[in-house]
Design a protein around this nucleic acid. Structure first.
Lengths: 360, 360
DNA sequence: GTCGCCGTGTTAATCGAATAACACGGAGGG
DNA sequence: CCCTCCGTGTTATTCGATTAACACGGCGAC
């Protein structure tokens, strides 16, 4: 049943090398012999050399890995990751390479990190075993254990920050983008805002933030940028919103506008993403609050949603990022090793002058 | 630099087997020896046994493959595939398995199919080389060359139709769903309709359909269902809409409502997906045509868009399908081999009684 | 005191292929 | 007519691990 190079070679009356050449190097064998071998192979139901053995010998896997800190099933729902991976896929498919999503549970890894050495090992098993030629890592610092494993494996690793631990990186200047949002709002007189950040994982719905270290790298960057742009006098409170989607945004808005005294009367709600901002807008509307007039709302991404909702946001070239990350792995002619992509403030109707009293 | 099991074993003063056990079978070695070996390994920068070699020996890859007939970069944009893969990913991540998108260009394969034998071989290379333990194939018939290669490789293949060539399958009864749509419209008096189908690939924008064989399997199923439900007296014309998104829907609607005599005055527009229907609704609105009153529009999927647009559509359990497909590969306790999932007609406001004169 | 078993380390066979180096026959040049 | 080179098939080495089978020392049971 299970044929091998050798058994096919016997059946065809040639050496194993000839069969290998027939499948992999047409130029290295006569057309006549090749046709015969391929014919015998087909008759026997031999589809070609075993990929695992081939991969061991050639040291190539034909696929690039992707590691994200949010769970594999999440990337298809999140606009940011979907866009990033679209860019990666565009390059991969034109090079004939596959894309392997490597399971990695950031929460489990964090929990196990100090506690339980073997637990941490387990969460990294898939990363240790992944059959890939290089890896794209988005949202993990260069000194993260998962990254260390990949580097020890000798794989080229493209990161999302300029950390020299990565073989190369494509960062996006989201600090600058967030700063622009902050400055824009400051200029409109806002001095009391709530920032809404997504924290995927089991952390659940909106809540007040205690530990800012637990944020995803880009969230903390943006938070810092917001603060810089708003200036020292501003009051910035933070809510985390669970998944990066409209539902979380709605919940976060509800919390920010609740009676909870720690959130009393902000004049602006700054979201980590358009999706969250979309939820915020929904919640405001159900309360009869008009975004841009009664209360300002900002997003991040400039996706289709931002246009639809007339959202002030930051445009970031996410698909370009994915493309470039993939090219750094698959097209060695890319010579820059660490690239910083720019962002752009897009002002629309969801922001306006601060009012003495916000929503309610 | 590049350490191996053996070199680490020498450095630690033990046998290669001991190192292997230290990494893979803690119970098979003393805790003391294990700690020492792991320590030496870490010091040497050895991340663990080489995945390729390990995969050759164990005959496991730790990842399941996914083959779709639409190009890898498309799956992140299309609601159907995103939903399907979300389901797959949910199961994969709970089993610690990866997900490998295998590049496959249906158009190139079709073009090469008869013409050029070596060309066809090339388009199947990635499928021949993919390092996976099983494959989920959506939208390809059981006798397609790509499927044949996978089966010859001895891989378990889960298909999207009940074809016995597949080791197992999860079909969705979209014929019945489409039939329900057709019957619903027939009951409302519609006898002259245009069906809008997505045909991803370079085929481009909307055009009239000449060759119904070139449709994706599910599209032709649905088309057949529409026809059945509408009954023999109805006039059914077909337009293909390129990508499965709102832009294509808009273009298709524009064509269907144009002066082109072959499309004159339909009373209903039946789309292959909610996304297409969304575009159709957009186009109608810009022309001042009210869906459900002047002209009926139907979708397919029952995603968020359908609710938003108050679209009559068919609910299909796509994520369940993905989950079940993955479980058939990853969880051998699933005993049914060929499953047919039901669909459900969801009537909303976008359909109504046929009028003598449709749009314009 | 002896037998056997258990825990733990080692030996050796094996997974299935790629490819450098070699062999050999015939064509072409001198 | 001989030498060389080219095209094409073969031989043999190598990729880096897993794991069944074996070996051996110490311990408890009788």
């Amino acid at each position: 049943m299970a044929h091998t190079l050798k058994s096919v070679a016997e059946a065809a009356g040639v050496s194993a090398a000839a069969v290998s050449y027939a499948f992999n190097r047409p130029d290295r064998i006569s057309a006549h012999a090749r046709a015969h071998i391929l014919d015998v192979a087909q008759r026997l139901g031999y589809a070609g050399p075993d990929p695992a053995a081939r991969s061991l010998k050639t040291r190539r896997a034909g696929s690039i890995g992707v590691v994200v800190p949010v769970g594999m099933s999440y990337v298809f729902r999140d606009h940011y990751f979907a866009e990033l991976l679209t860019g990666v896929a565009e390059i991969a498919e034109r090079r004939g390479a596959g894309m392997t999503l490597v399971p990695f549970d950031l929460d489990a890894a964090e929990r196990a990190r100090t506690h339980d050495e073997d637990g941490l090992r387990d969460t990294l098993d898939a990363i240790r075993h992944a059959l890939v030629d290089g890896v794209i890592v988005d949202g993990l610092a260069g000194d993260h254990p998962a990254v260390r494993v990949l580097i020890d494996r000798g794989l080229p690793v493209v990161g999302s920050t300029a950390d020299p631990a990565f073989s190369s990186s494509v960062a996006i200047d989201d600090v600058a983008g967030a700063r622009a949002i902050g400055a824009h709002l400051a200029a409109l007189g806002h001095r009391d805002v709530v920032v809404v950040l997504a924290t995927p994982g089991p952390s659940g719905v909106a809540r007040d933030v205690t530990d800012e270290d637990a944020l995803l790298p880009y969230s903390s960057h943006r938070l810092a940028g917001f603060r810089e742009g708003l200036g020292p006098g501003a009051r910035v409170r933070v809510v985390t919103g669970g998944f990066n989607d409209t539902g979380s945004g709605r919940a976060a808005a509800a919390l920010a506008l609740s009676d909870d005294p720690s959130f009393a009367d902000p004049t602006a709600l700054l979201a980590d993403s358009d999706a969250l901002a979309g939820g915020i807008v929904d919640e405001l509307r159900t309360r009869g609050i008009v975004p841009g007039r009664d209360l300002s709302v900002t997003g991040f991404d400039d996706g289709a949603l931002a246009t639809d909702l007339d959202l002030t946001t930051v445009r970031q070239p996410v698909r370009d990022r994915g493309r470039l990350m993939a090219r750094m792995l698959l097209e060695p002619d890319v010579d820059e090793r660490h690239v910083l992509l720019p962002t752009e403030l897009v002002v629309r109707g969801s922001t306006g002058h601060a009012r003495a009293t916000g929503g309610r």
